[in-house]
Design a binder for these strands. Structure first.
Length: 855
RNA sequence: GCUCGGGUGGCGGAAUGGUAUACGCGCAACACUUAAAAUGUUGUGAGGUUCAUCCUCAUGAGGGUUCGACUCCCUCCCCGAGCACCA
């Protein structure tokens, strides 16, 4: 019989599987469903490297096991193909992104197929396909209708040299990626999605899902909820005769500011107040600021600074006092100086901070630099009479001191009491900002809105188009006067000649006057199209929904199919809303944004009754990155990219799969080492030669190998569930090593080994399975089970310890009693002499060890 | 700075509080071969000791809990990832 010819075997079975379509998901089906998902790739021009494949192989193993366990498995793939690299390539070469995308996806598809994953290719999707992005646009309009999309003035990164707007990822460290010029912020009208409206729900939803703890933490941090209070500070009028006119907040009588704080208990410790440079109060107080020129100079400088520099680590705090302006502490009526400093952020809280240097690190630092007083009001070790002098800010809790009638109160209680005392109010703030949904770019989904001057000035004038509620504006139209949804989706991306963004920071689409000029779908008067496109994140925010019904022309997905695959039901049918993708794996780098965005879309669609499940993913795990040899990131420029094509050529797909799983823990970053491919390759070679050289008997009992195969089944089954693929592979190797001594093996044992091997090395397992004269694919056979009674040998090595140190080993029967074990162990050479010293205590662990504690 | 991981042979890494170093790479010796490759067999933490044996020391450092600690607790050092002036 010939040697292990992986090339022949692999191409043979890949063709057969494709033809027999054994990996395609069924619908309808009476079986239990299973939906496993990996993050669909961005098809870059560089092709796949071995790192991309790790999560695919891992989930393929899980999916294959589920299929063998009798589930109806949905394991789909698609392409997240809109994006900047393709667009930039188009700008450079003039080749249309569509062509580039086609070429790249073809290459990716070929590469992925070459490792034989059990993907359902009949459900392949592509975010750049108009049949797909029609629904991305459609969902966007749903957001619009429900008042969750709005236009706002938001800064974009602008390169003054290239005269183009840059995406955040192109403005590296505040510099233009192409020419290195420092970018500046330029205000532009942009579409926003109101994700902040879902902050609380996104937080609450985490309770029902099974994400890795670190992933949950990142979600929580990304949302950044903090509970605190708004406290009013009045601005003292230095010239009592003169009237100061200030647009006051609700609960400030004479004008002033509200501060947001999470520590109202420290209010008596406030020694100054700080405004963000952008704060509007500064211009309103102009006439009172005696050092106005200095203040304005500071503001101008800090505006020039790119955000990165403003937030340098350990950077010296800067600021300027507003001379002539004082703020009044509502707790004690005392007035404190007011500063402007850029360590206060304009877009968080109210843009004003009450500074408590004694109990806040940033304020401490600032106060030290500007020699401002530090007043301690929280004492950590009360009732000790004296509090230790502060050498740093104390940010913990304790009891209040030097705080008037609140002295002695617990800081937690004081939060409420003091807020109430100064007529402040409780307030919750989030770090999460609304999502800037516009890109002034080409290669993205056009935003399907039209601006109509006529409708803007006469909002209720005309009837809407057929099929919509008559005489009532949607929330989106109310909020964004004149913006009218396109009636016929998709809005196809028009062809352009020049893919460069426009001179004034507009999308290349803005240059297509013919396309831009259109008729209002509502009143029929001349109108203009929105020329911005959606960000990369749009298509990936809902792709997991499309997989259940990828070819549907009428809906983004059929509700029956959604209910089946997500394992949940619409509220009208059942109260079961927990469901979603059963297992979603992806990179750690997407754990904040992509996860947040897609959870937001799904929750919104759930709220408006379009999907049955509240949360998109039941379980989320993350794989570790594969680094180049030497432990550095694989990149073209470093020349350390390992191409899977080469590995498949030299060692075969099964070896590559096995090595990627064997190299180390799945969730940890690990350096590639092609040398180590030898090990798994030899293992498969041994499996092959064993199968062809040794006798496979028809015995109906497992014989000597029965305990080992049972242990192996247990280990492999459990390890797959925890993604401990490396130890699963090693236990397969251990089994094979043990077999080497055998001249014949019962088919009963061998078959179970092949079944365990099948998810890892599907081609060789299938070939060897067919050599056992099986007609059906091994991948449709039931997963083997083990008998807990059979996993142990009859005898074991009893470890004999003296004072916790191993002194002897004795081979004894399983289930030996303590008394018997003691007898044998005491006589064991190596232990006897110690035991003679006199036993103080004996510790006996059944079927494992006996420990003599001696003098 | 904060949060979460991690630190074990020459290397990748294993170990429900119970034989540390599984499995693999590499290396060495041997077998097969005219020879090499491939393959197979055996050995392989360090130091000492003996013909076999045995002893001591080793899981980033230092303490602690325990009959027994890579594992649990405290202090500190280093590496990686994420967040980063969010009041």
């Amino acid at each position: 019989m010939a040697g292990y010819n992986f090339k022949r075997i692999e191409s043979k079975w890949q063709k057969k599987w494709e033809k027999s379509r054994i990996y395609e998901a069924e619908f309808p089906s009476k079986k239990k469903k299973w939906y496993s998902l990996f993050e669909f790739p961005y098809p870059s021009g560089d092709g796949l490297h071995v790192g991309h494949l790790r999560p695919y192989i891992g989930l393929d193993i899980i999916s294959r096991k589920r299929r063998m366990e009798g589930y109806n498995v949905l394991f789909p793939i698609g392409w997240d193909a809109f994006g900047l690299p393709t667009e930039n390539y188009a700008i450079k070469t003039g080749i249309h992104p569509e062509k580039v995308t086609k070429k790249n996806t073809d290459n990716f598809r070929r590469q992925i197929k070459s490792v034989g994953p059990s993907l359902d290719w009949s459900r392949e999707i592509n975010t750049t396909d108009p049949d797909y992005y029609k629904w991305t646009q459609w969902i966007f309009l749903k957001f619009f209708e429900h008042g969750l999309a709005y236009k706002a003035n938001m800064p974009i990164n602008w390169c003054p040299k290239d005269k183009i707007g840059l995406a955040n990822e192109e403005s590296v460290g505040g510099k233009c990626e192409r020419c290195g010029t420092e970018t500046i912020k330029k205000d532009k009208e942009q579409w926003m999605l109101k994700i902040t409206a879902y902050a609380e729900k996104l937080l609450a939803g985490l309770k029902d899902v099974d994400y890795l703890e670190t992933i949950k933490t990142q979600q929580v941090n990304g949302i950044g909820k903090s509970e605190g209070a708004l406290i009013p500070f009045e601005i003292k009028n230095p010239w009592p005769g003169r009237q100061i006119s200030l647009a006051g907040q609700a609960n400030i009588k004479n004008g002033g500011v509200e501060v947001f704080t999470t520590r109202p208990d420290t209010l008596f410790g406030v020694t100054y107040v700080v405004l963000a440079p952008e704060h509007e109060l500064i211009s309103k107080l102009k006439t009172q600021i005696s050092n106005l020129w200095e203040v304005e100079k500071y503001i101008a400088e800090s505006k020039k600074k790119p955000e990165q520099e403003r937030v340098v680590e350990g950077g010296e705090k800067t600021g300027v006092e507003l001379k002539g302006v004082r703020a009044v502490n509502p707790a004690n009526g005392k007035d404190v100086p007011v500063y402007v400093a850029d360590y206060v952020l304009a877009n968080y809280g109210t843009g004003v901070v009450m500074a408590v240097p004694a109990h806040d690190e940033r304020d401490w630092e600032f106060a030290r630099k500007f020699k401002l007083p530090v007043k301690m009001v929280i004492c950590p070790n009360y009732p000790e009479p004296t509090c230790p002098p502060l050498t740093a800010a104390y940010t913990g809790g304790g009891r209040l001191v030097d705080s008037g009638k609140f002295n002695g109160m617990e800081s937690e209680d004081a939060k409420q009491a003091i807020t109430h005392f100064v007529a402040g109010k409780k307030e919750v703030k989030y770090k999460l900002r609304d999502w800037v949904f516009s890109r002034q770019r080409y290669w993205g989904e056009p935003i399907p809105l039209i601006f109509c001057e006529n409708c803007a000035s006469n909002p209720k004038l005309k009837d809407p188009w057929p099929g919509r509620q008559k005489s009532k504006l949607s929330l989106g139209e109310e909020m964004n006067p004149g913006w009218i949804p396109v009636a016929d989706l998709p809005v196809k991306l028009p062809k352009v000649k020049d893919f460069r963004p426009g001179e004034n920071g507009e999308s290349p689409l803005a240059s297509l006057e013919k396309w831009v000029k259109t008729k209002c779908p509502k009143c029929g008067k001349p109108a203009r199209r929105e020329t911005d496109v959606m960000p990369n994140w749009a298509g990936s925010s809902w792709y997991f929904l499309r997989y259940v019904d990828p070819k549907n022309k009428k809906e983004f997905a059929n509700i029956k199919k959604l209910e089946y695959w997500m394992g949940a039901a619409l509220p009208s049918r059942s109260s079961k809303s927990e469901g979603g993708v059963d297992w979603y794996n992806g990179g750690m780098e997407h754990v904040t944004l992509h996860l947040l965005y897609s959870r937001f879309w799904n929750q919104f669609l759930y709220d408006i009754g379009l999907v049955p499940h509240r949360e998109p993913y039941r379980k989320r795990t993350a794989h570790g990155m594969i680094l180049g040899e030497g432990g550095i990131k694989m990149s073209k420029s470093k020349g350390n990219v390992v191409n899977p094509d080469d590995m498949v050529n030299i060692y075969g797909a099964d070896s590559l799969r096995l090595y990627e799983m064997f190299m180390g823990p799945f969730d940890q970053a690990i350096a590639w080492d092609s040398k180590n491919m030898e090990g798994v390759s030899r293992f498969l070679g041994r499996v092959w030669s064993f199968a062809v050289e040794k006798e496979i008997t028809k015995d109906s009992v497992g014989g000597r190998l029965e305990p080992l195969i049972n242990r192996t089944i247990k280990k492999v089954s459990e390890d797959i569930e925890t993604m401990a693929f490396n130890t699963a592979v090693s236990s397969l190797m251990i089994f094979m090593n043990e077999c080497r001594n055998e001249e014949r093996i019962p088919q009963k044992v061998w078959a179970r080994f092949l079944l365990l091997l099948a998810p890892f090395a599907p081609h060789i397992a299938e070939e060897l399975w067919s050599m056992l004269k099986h007609k059906k694919s091994i991948h449709l056979e039931p997963w083997p089970t083990y008998d807990p009674e059979l996993i142990h040998e009859e005898t074991f090595e009893l470890i004999v310890q003296v004072n916790g140190k191993v002194r002897a080993k004795v081979s004894v029967k399983r289930g030996i009693s303590e008394v018997e074990a003691k007898e044998l162990a005491m006589k064991a050479p190596g232990a006897a002499e110690y035991v003679a010293r006199g036993i103080v205590k004996i510790v006996f662990v059944p079927n494992k060890l006996i420990n003599f504690v001696v003098k």
